[in-house]
Write a protein that binds this DNA or RNA. Sequence first.
DNA 1: ATTGACTTCCAAAACGTTTTGGATTATACT
DNA 2: AGTATAATCCAAAACGTTTTGGAAGTCAAT
Lengths: 356, 356
Amino acid sequence: MGDRQGSGTYRGMSVTLKDLAKHVGVSVTTASRALAGYDDVAEETRQRVQEAAEELGYYPNITARRLQKQRSETLGFIMPTADPRYGDPFFSELIAGIGNEAAKHEYDLLVSTHSPDSPEEKAAYERATRGGWVDGLIVVRTRENDARIQLLCQQKFPFVAFGRTDDDLEFPYVDEDSKAGIQQLVNHFIELGHRRIGYIAPPKGLMFGVYRKRGFFETMSSHALPIEEEWVIEGDMTQRGGAEAADRLLAANSSLSAIICGNDLMAIGVMNRLRQKGLSVGLDIAVAGFDDIPLAAYTSPTLTTVRQPLYEIGRQTCAMLIKMLSGQTAGEVHVMLTPQLIVRDSSGSIIPESRR
Amino acid sequence: MGDRQGSGTYRGMSVTLKDLAKHVGVSVTTASRALAGYDDVAEETRQRVQEAAEELGYYPNITARRLQKQRSETLGFIMPTADPRYGDPFFSELIAGIGNEAAKHEYDLLVSTHSPDSPEEKAAYERATRGGWVDGLIVVRTRENDARIQLLCQQKFPFVAFGRTDDDLEFPYVDEDSKAGIQQLVNHFIELGHRRIGYIAPPKGLMFGVYRKRGFFETMSSHALPIEEEWVIEGDMTQRGGAEAADRLLAANSSLSAIICGNDLMAIGVMNRLRQKGLSVGLDIAVAGFDDIPLAAYTSPTLTTVRQPLYEIGRQTCAMLIKMLSGQTAGEVHVMLTPQLIVRDSSGSIIPESRR
DNA sequence: ATTGACTTCCAAAACGTTTTGGATTATACT
DNA sequence: AGTATAATCCAAAACGTTTTGGAAGTCAAT
């Protein structure tokens, strides 16, 4: 039997169904059907095949099976981030939920990253729908006029989105009620006595940003509170972005007593920057985030936020997709989850009448 | 427009190479070779094929290609965790590095999770090596007497590990010098005046735990410092585990002035529990972690730790694997990185002589 | 006219499964 | 004896590529 390959490439000398069949003395068909448990093969033969399979260490070639079955048993998830930040807790948690649910149903999960709205992203989606990479896709961070969703709808490719869109395409989604979330946050701050509240919005074009912003404006005006133009600015969802936004907010000399951030990561950046400037978060100024990433409970001070059950959302999104793929069209295809206010130290306490 | 296909299954009506060839009026062979850029097809034909491909929206079927090429262009990463915690920053960062490097070389990354040393984990590895799921594997958190590595070595399946082992198997790895890392930490605390230092070790069986523990004991004794038996206990690498360990450490009434934790997550749990008990981390007691996960800079107080460049490690591990797969055996197959001490607030300041 | 070299093309095999559409044999019923 | 019925089995096709091993044609040199 001599030595192994010279090159670094591993040539699988694995035993094939043909080998197995020959060894047992049956046809390839029978071997295949025996292992698959069809009832048109005698119990005795089935056992012989099965034993031989174990003995020879037979493992079906997954690629061949996929080719024949015309499905990859793989789900795709294309992360929309500039430089691939798997590190972002938002995505990690989501992937956790998706991945676990996928695994439970014996689906593989293929993860990749591309900048939002980039040509590469488009290419990735086209490849995914055409080349048979995956059986279904999960789309997150829906955008206004979302090209991805338009493509998928048009191709009739199976997918579930986390988030809605503004065009009138009909597609399955799971979403959290961002507007209600921000509303809770604003109400909470108002109850504490805040009147001058700033808002750091997610970048334009993101649907959840639209809902959150809308929630902010509506709730403020429903309490007849003013919003100066420079109180609402945009941040890029990162810690650094939050810090920069804090700079701009402070530079405007706005005398805000509270800042609500479009996500936790920015809130953390904001708190850090405020602390650097000698301000005490909670005492001098209140800060809140959105998401309740695991980090939020461990920052200094701990962060008031709105709990978005990312893990659960990932799980449900994935479950819905798998259900669709298995042919069961039944079930709700529009799921809306209500986020929950989490009050922590960054809220501070009630502001005395004099300082409002 | 109109309704969707009856069954939930998406039957790809995609155009195949045969369709394309027929459309252009050449053989399948020629079409294939034209697109692949072989020089045995006339320039003029090549163009015609290419144009037709665009026109028809031809995308090669990845599965068929893989079957023929006998390689999946996919790398595997099996996370050794009880319940799949993609959320764990340790893994997120690592995956980020691995995933980016893989993407750069047009490899897919398949991620799944299994409990360490479980039958499922073993099955996953066998499936991976036999069934042609992936071309190569990345193994992390190497263990004493690591069954995974033994299997892969025996099967001669291509892989790269993050971590060494204690048996004398020869295999490619990237590792950080844990011993040196802990050493820096202990020295740092000693310089601050600490003499009674506790250690929360990673669970038995993990190689990096072995090195870190060794580093702890050796450095302590090289400074002629005592280690009481109950000062060194084991934690499970989670925040909760850290909190529980802190309880046990405090219950032992050990009067420790510093606690070094086997990873950052435990350190965070420890700090939280200490705070709950009314102790001020940094003032009453010093705490340090290991890894420098992104969180560490944002905890309260910020966490002294040892920076393990997880992203970079993931990247290098993946790069090494890909190089192996491409047949270039050249290059270093044993890479050792030295971690870097990061001093933050949880260290506290120098302890006055009187309190040592 | 033959030979050789070169260019351009293609039919058929191969990759390893599953599925299709019978074929064969045994058993039971008229 | 003849005919359903059921129980087992299998050869061949199919999935969509790439690779192999020529074939056919052109051109130039002999």
